[in-house]
Amino acid sequence: MTTAETSVNGTPSPVATPVLRARGLVKTYGHVVGLDGVDLELYPGEVLAIIGDNGAGKSTLIKCLTGAEIPDQGEILLDGERVHFKRPQDARAAGIETVYQTLAVAPSLDIASNLYLGREVRRPGLLGSVLRLTDRAGMRKAARRHLTDLGISTLQDVTVPVESLSGGQRQAVAVARAAAFGSKVVVLDEPTAALGVRESGQVLELVRTLRDKGVPVIIISHNMPHVFEIADRIHVQRLGRRAATITPRSHTMTEAVALMTGAAEA
């Protein structure tokens, strides 16, 4: 399958090895074809947006990349190595962190506990191995540092429960958790869907910070202005395939929508 690989100044050089690459992914659910041979490349230090109409296969594609679904055919390469994810934990262990639309935070736990939920750090020595004592002070300190690194200065008290935060702040906690553990790729599913204008702006700023720190980001969004504001490249998904890969400079929003709906061919 040949696609329009538009090369424009500022886009990553095609010579670079993709951090994450999918080739010919096929996923069917009975007679329903979710993915029909999808290719995808994510290059170092870029924000790749995935757009597409409902049913185009965006979610299925992301689920295959993050281990929530196992593709029937095709291969996924992380840093050039072939990987097989059977569970979301496998993908996470390999360095692919996902921020789900539901955020997957425990509202009554504090920020630090949420950042470390499922990977708590124990105290060294017998305190940790026998008494299972967690390193609460260490985790809180590290949590503050992670938040500061991402420029989230409004969340310095990491002991407040997440439920007392605004929607944007919760999103920031979820993104910080994804970014905090030396991840190779961060996947954001509709990160601005439930947010107001100002909070959306803060989350987009967070995505930029993440990219500037060298972490490549895949972002799924229905919001065209957000996509065109943040993305370096845009993967257009249509009918279970990649219709095109464009950039905000090569195409206008109207042209992108035309590609999405099939009104135009790449």
Binding site: T102, V105, A106, S108, L109, L117, G118
Partner: peptide
């Protein structure tokens, strides 16, 4: 922490 997380939001705990 896991006991609290499971009681708070099962799905969030599972995804974590």
């Amino acid at each position: 922490k896991h006991v609290y997380a499971v009681g708070d939001d099962k799905e969030a705990a599972r995804l974590s």
